Amino acid sequence: MPSQLANIDIIRHTYEGPQYLLAALTESTEWTEAAGYPYGGTYHGVASIKENVFDRLGTEWDGFTPTVHVYHEFKDKDIIIAEGTYTGVYKATGRSIHADFVHVWELDSGKIVKFKQYVDSHIVVQAMTNE
């Protein structure tokens, strides 16, 4: 991914496929999944983020998709905020989700240095259980 891309374009690309996301991460990227979310916690570096979040999403869900509806760019702070919804079907239960999320991305020199997720985790947890 060329380094001359604007921050907002880098983040838009991350939602187009894992190859774009992985290319924008570094070994010092801090990635925080929301408390209460099944993959909740803070992970550091590409391998940890991939293993604890994306490998699990890819194997535990059918069609897990984050769809962004609105981007907000704070150029003077190198921050992008994305608002959207998660959809997908949890394989073990066959239950689907439609959960709102907000992602806060912080970049430096075209690389993601920090990510924080806000999500209605209750909806996701319900889909993952037989209750």
Rank of each mutant, 00 (worst) to 15 (best):
Y71V: 10
Y71R: 00
Y71S: 03
H72Y: 13
H72S: 15
H72E: 15
H72V: 15
H72R: 10
E73M: 00
E73R: 00
E73I: 00
E73A: 04
F74N: 13
F74H: 13
F74Q: 10
F74L: 09
F74V: 12
K75R: 14
K75T: 14
K75A: 13
K75P: 14
D76K: 08
D76R: 06
K77N: 15
D78S: 13
D78R: 04
D78W: 00
I79K: 03
I79R: 00
I80H: 01
I80R: 02
I81S: 06
I81K: 06
I81Q: 10
A82V: 06
A82K: 02
A82H: 04
E83A: 01
E83H: 03
E83D: 11
E83P: 06
G84W: 06
G84L: 09
T85S: 13
T85Y: 15
Y86C: 05
Y86N: 09
Y86V: 06
T87G: 05
T87F: 05
T87C: 07
T87S: 09
T87K: 08
G88H: 01
G88R: 05
G88A: 09
G88M: 02
G88P: 04
V89P: 01
V89S: 08
V89E: 08
Y90I: 07
Y90W: 08
Y90D: 07
Y90V: 04
K91L: 03
K91E: 12
A92W: 10
A92G: 13
T93I: 11
T93L: 08
G94W: 12
G94M: 05
G94C: 11
R95D: 04
R95C: 02
R95M: 02
R95L: 10
R95S: 04
R95V: 03
I97E: 04
I97T: 02
I97M: 00
I97Q: 00
H98D: 14
H98W: 09
H98M: 03
H98V: 09
A99R: 07
A99Q: 10
A99N: 11
D100H: 12
D100N: 14
D100W: 15
F101W: 09
F101I: 03
F101P: 01
F101H: 02
V102L: 10
V102K: 03
V102G: 04
H103I: 00
H103A: 06
H103W: 03
H103T: 08
H103R: 07
H103P: 07
V104L: 10
V104K: 10
V104T: 08
V104Q: 07
V104F: 05
V104Y: 06
W105V: 01
W105I: 04
E106M: 14
E106C: 10
L107E: 04
L107K: 01
L107F: 04
D108S: 13
D108V: 15
S109Y: 08
S109V: 12
S109F: 08
S109D: 15
S109G: 12
G110F: 03
G110K: 03
K111F: 11
K111I: 11
K111W: 12
K111E: 14
K111H: 13
I112V: 06
V113D: 06
V113I: 14
V113K: 09
K114A: 04
K114F: 02
K114L: 01
K114Q: 09
